[in-house]
Computed example of a mutant assay.
Amino acid sequence: MDELSRADLWSLEEYAEARPAFRQRVMAHKKHRQLALGAHARLLFEDALTIKYQVQEMLRIEKIFEARGIHEELAAYNPLIPDGGNWKATFMIEYSDPAERAARLRELVGIEQSVWLQVAGCERIHPIANEDLERSSADKTASVHFLRFELDPDSLAAARAGAGLRAGIDHHAYTVEALAVAEPVRASLQADLA
């Protein structure tokens, strides 16, 4: 997939007008790009549309309208767009109670490396995590991680052909057994590989 450029974005003024309809479109799109992994973890698979929304929101919130600032946002977020041979996802650990979240994040060090996807008939794919900066320490992990799942040639061919997809987490403090990915999500991810 192509990276976003400044030409793909609305000005702040244009975005203010387009935002309600665009936001509704993106929220509907994200429904087929999310995968719950148990009760407290979730993958949100990114693509050009989700990243365009994120960039537009950051520009809006920060009131960025100068070329340099826009290019900095694009440089920060473009790496999250899949390139046709991988899937990229935001991995979120979700505990609503702050004390419970703090305790669990101490127990879940390394969980981002324990997430996996598997195209039917192929090997499990473990992610490359947090390429932009380290989000875990020896004492605790972050509640948000950025993951890249690189597909080997067999997985890529099978996924492009429509093979089923499973996911899970193999962490000693949080395990999710092989979970079948729902068809709308699988189809959305298949489109990333075109």
Rank of each mutant, 00 (worst) to 15 (best):
M58N: 06
E72R: 14
D8M: 06
V176I: 02
A67Q: 10
F149L: 07
D47Y: 08
V181C: 07
E17I: 11
I81R: 06
A191V: 12
I70G: 03
A7S: 14
K30C: 08
R106G: 04
A191P: 08
I128F: 09
L35E: 00
T50F: 03
L133A: 15
A157G: 05
A161C: 06
N86V: 01
Q34A: 14
V181L: 02
F149W: 03
D170C: 12
E66R: 00
L35T: 04
Q34E: 13
A41E: 05
K88R: 15
D152K: 08
S96A: 09
R148Q: 13
T50Y: 04
E14A: 15
I111T: 07
S5C: 03
L35I: 01
M58P: 00
E107K: 02
D170A: 14
R60I: 01
F45R: 07
A167Y: 00
R19L: 11
N130K: 04
I111M: 04
P127R: 03
A157S: 10
I81P: 08
V144R: 07
A120F: 12
H171S: 14
L43H: 10
I169R: 01
H171L: 15
A102Q: 09
H172P: 15
H172E: 15
A187L: 14
D97Y: 00
H172Q: 13
E134K: 13
L59P: 01
R186I: 02
E123Y: 06
L37N: 04
E14I: 12
I70N: 08
G110D: 08
V181T: 01
M58C: 07
A180D: 15
D8Q: 06
A102V: 03
G162I: 08
R160Y: 05
L37Y: 03
K140Q: 08
R160Q: 11
A75W: 11
I93R: 03
S136Q: 11
A48V: 06
E183Y: 02
P153W: 09
E66N: 00
E112V: 13
S5P: 00
L59F: 01
A120C: 10
A99M: 14
T175Y: 02
V119R: 05
E134R: 14
I51F: 02
S96F: 05
C122G: 12
L4T: 08
D97Q: 00
K63I: 03
E123P: 05
R104M: 12
P79E: 11
